[in-house]
Amino acid sequence: MKKFLKLSLALLLCVVLAFSFCSCVDVDELRNDQGFWANKERTVISFRGAEYKLLPACEEIYVVPSAEWYDPIYITEKDVPVLLADSRGMPAVIGKGAELLVCGIWESDTDKVYCRADLYDRKVKAIESFKLEHYCAWGPSYEENNGKLGALINQYRLLSEQSSAVVSEALATEGVVRNNFSFDGYEIFLCDKNIEFIADGYSGGMWVTVENSTYYLVKRVYDREKFDTTFTYYQLAPEKAVALMMEIKAFEY
């Protein structure tokens, strides 16, 4: 009887110890979404086996969203346990191809962009030399996530040469400045040829709109010192405006 009891206890202990070696899918997923500050200055992040370095501040830099865009990751100190990552860490989002990482996404004034170490030098050169000479518009697109339909992510697409020429011609004319605009129309942005850099809405946003049967290209200009926004209306030829609108609308599908 004693032998049987000892054997049962030993077997129970083995079963219990065996569980200790079991991993947990939920914990693995949390670990996969946790990054670490690699230095005290917080200029380097270690995430999923790669290092990400802080890029020089650049408002125009555009991070292409990935399928995980709406699943925030958390950057914490190395000693923070994975279960406390969301409460002790800084939220961040990872861009397409895991090239860029944006920290503090929910606090737009303090957004910082980190670049993967192998692409860092190229990105810094691009920041120093980019030129916003092209135009783009955005339309919704769906990202795949593990073969399933993922999040709705907006992707920018370059306008054709003809449409870009129409916009450039309109901007070369004299416009009428007004203090308000209905924000009803098709939005266009100033960008570089690879859409790596886009002028933000405050000083780069434009709209193709129609008012009282007249087509306009409306450009928003924001004065950061005076906190003042004005809108400059440039008249467009109807057939050119309609062609531009049709091209932008086609991006939505």
């Binding site: 569980f19 346990p81 994975v82």
Partner: peptide
């Protein structure tokens, strides 16, 4: 028991 318990104790500590 397993990975989750270890992480739970780490978080508590």
């Amino acid at each position: 028991m397993g990975d989750y318990l270890v992480e739970l104790f780490k978080a508590a500590g």
